[in-house]
Design a protein around this nucleic acid. Structure first.
Lengths: 352, 352
DNA sequence: TATTTTAACGCAAACGATTGCACAAATTCC
DNA sequence: GGAATTTGTGCAATCGTTTGCGTTAAAATA
């Protein structure tokens, strides 16, 4: 029984303009008598008047909505990001429309399309990231955009993420320092920014230490649990299995734990494990998981700040922000003896 | 550079009506020549035409949006619910607008207000739940609503949740069968449906077993981790501490684990633990956590089904659906000896 | 008293789509 | 060959707000 300004106008005998002005606090500018105001307000309350945001948005060309799309909302990392974003944006009077692309580029594309049609005032995008033709459309539509976590280096858009490469370096260097040389990497979705940069960090760490990269130890194809499970099973079947695994995401690590349990592999006794992402439950796992933590709250805050800046000055230079990762050492990796291994260790290189 | 129907009309020389019809597939009904269609479509593409959902929504009185508000999006339970909801609704052509009320009734209220203003086609609400004046407004606005997880029994609205009482019964009965009699309950936010029903189940289980209820063992005030942590610390300081703890939510259980670790309490050796909610990581915790699982996917599916039904027949009788919980027994509870305790066990009562 | 201000409000044009109805021209039917 | 259909398109109202610009009547000023 939603009533309109028109209804109130008829019931009170005033014009739609007047009603609009008292009901939305523009009455200061137009001086409307106290008596009129009271009457209109009262009738409005009686009728349960509620402004129609569609009509308003259409008229003022602003919706106060920000579109958010993430690859997997049930991933603790992204749900934490969304929570922070929502809180931060609420302070500024924005609400968020959330889409879950389910790591599917087609869904992501249609989500973005839908958001643009809805005329959101801005977009925060954690892209699946294997393609960016649709991103270009956002730019063409001239709506403010910031990419989080998953970025495109080639693209001229604002973005913010953790320094993935550095995070991987931290993790893998740690493993190396504990004596590991056969270190496997279970990656996430290939072709995505997060994955490629993490992979790069893994490779760099090995190279810096003079450890040859064994392509058989680089496996995996998405950020889900099942991937971790399957690839761990495979790794354990290798002639000379790895002594440590570094996983590209928290869900993958969970899969690895499952596989190890099934195979009666104890961590860190038989196998060491470090993961990217540090979900809330990492320290309660068995064993407590060493993990690379991302500054999620900060990431969300800055994303909103960058977006705000972009909204006021559309043509400023682009920003690409990298946040510092942090390695939280717990008890999932064991120090091992330097055993003679088939892998040549060119320690000398390091000193050169 | 967003162009409108008007723009296309001018550029092609046809009327706005015709343009609208070819661009939105109503051309079957109105038979527009192939030549005209092609021309319009081409110009539309060149101009990067994108329908304005605000204008459309205003005109057709439908937005294809469903509002969703949850108390804590970073809670694994709710993020899983949202993910399922989003997927289910996407199939039907709806997108979702998500609000996180942060367990704050004021935020919830303003979220609902905002959603109604946006003219969503339906509302799915996991209410904080201590008050429901704003819910009444939704009913007045005559927009379809279904409540999930947190319901109001007093209120005449569709709702769906797990059978909380039964879930608690399952958990506590299990503890009792393992020989526990001093069982603490760390509850969530008092006054909420989920909490009260779970508490009720806890009490019933004890009563059925003839175990006296000790109010000192019922503690806690919200569903967050910190609550579990603090209350566990307190429980452990009791003259005769409980031998088992049942927590009302997964995050609470995490807090309990933390407290136990700090106090060098081993689970299940020194203390048994069961929790409501069975997050993805429960089985990987140390120890693997016994937990009451909610059928999340089913809950989301049914919520959408109920909402759909309500959208087509607004005046059907209300439905209140309870889903079956399931107890997943893992290794966080120990069987204990029936030791002489200060609590009287009136086993005989059971047989009466 | 004539003139300027001010207070209190109304008109009407957007915003961008949808859609029932009308209508001319071209076909088909008898 | 005239009537009845069909085909292809346009008119204009409508959805609910916002807002620049008028327009009165009363009050203030000269």
């Amino acid at each position: 029984m939603s009533s309109t300004l028109q209804d109130i106008a008829e019931k009170t005998g005033f014009s739609v303009s007047t009603v609009s002005r008292v009901l939305h606090d523009t009455s200061k500018k137009y001086t409307i008598s106290k008596k009129t105001q009271d009457k209109i307000k009262q009738v409005a309350k009686e009728c349960g008047y509620r402004v129609n945001a569609l009509a308003r948005g259409l008229r003022v060309q602003k919706t106060n909505e920000i579109g958010v799309v993430v690859p997997d909302i049930s991933n603790p990392f992204f749900s934490a990001v969304i929570k922070s974003l929502a809180g931060e944006l609420r302070k500024k009077g924005y609400s968020i429309i959330v889409y879950d692309s389910d790591e599917d580029i087609a869904i992501e594309r249609s989500s973005v399309k839908s958001l643009l049609e809805k005329r959101v005032d801005g977009l925060i995008l954690a892209s699946v990231g294997q393609d960016f033709s649709h991103i270009q459309k956002i730019r063409d539509a001239e709506i403010p955009l910031v990419m989080v976590d998953r970025c495109f280096e080639e693209l001229d858009v604002d973005s913010i993420s953790v320094d993935n490469e550095k995070g991987s370096l931290l993790a893998v260097n740690y493993l190396i320092n504990e004596g590991h040389t056969r270190i496997a990497f279970i990656q996430g979705l290939p072709g995505t920014y997060a994955n490629e940069t993490r992979l790069q960090g893994y490779k760099s760490a090995l190279q810096n230490a003079g450890i040859e990269i064994d392509e058989n130890l680089i496996v995996g194809d998405d950020f889900r649990e099942l991937n971790g499970y399957l690839k761990t099973k495979l790794l354990l079947k290798l002639a000379t299995p790895p002594t440590a695994i570094f996983t590209a995401g928290d869900l993958i690590a969970l899969g690895t734990l499952e596989a190890c349990r099934e195979n009666n592999i104890t961590i860190p006794g038989d196998l060491s494990l470090v993961t990217f992402d540090d979900p809330i439950f990492a320290s309660y796992l068995s064993p407590a998981l060493s993990a690379v933590e991302q500054p999620i709250t900060k990431m969300a805050e800055m994303a909103v700040a960058i977006l705000s800046r972009r909204m006021v000055s559309p043509f400023d230079e682009q920003m690409k922000v990298l946040l510092e990762p942090k390695l939280n050492i717990r008890s999932s990796v064991a120090r091992i003896q330097q055993q003679p291994s088939p892998v040549k260790i060119k320690k000398s290189l390091k000193k050169v």
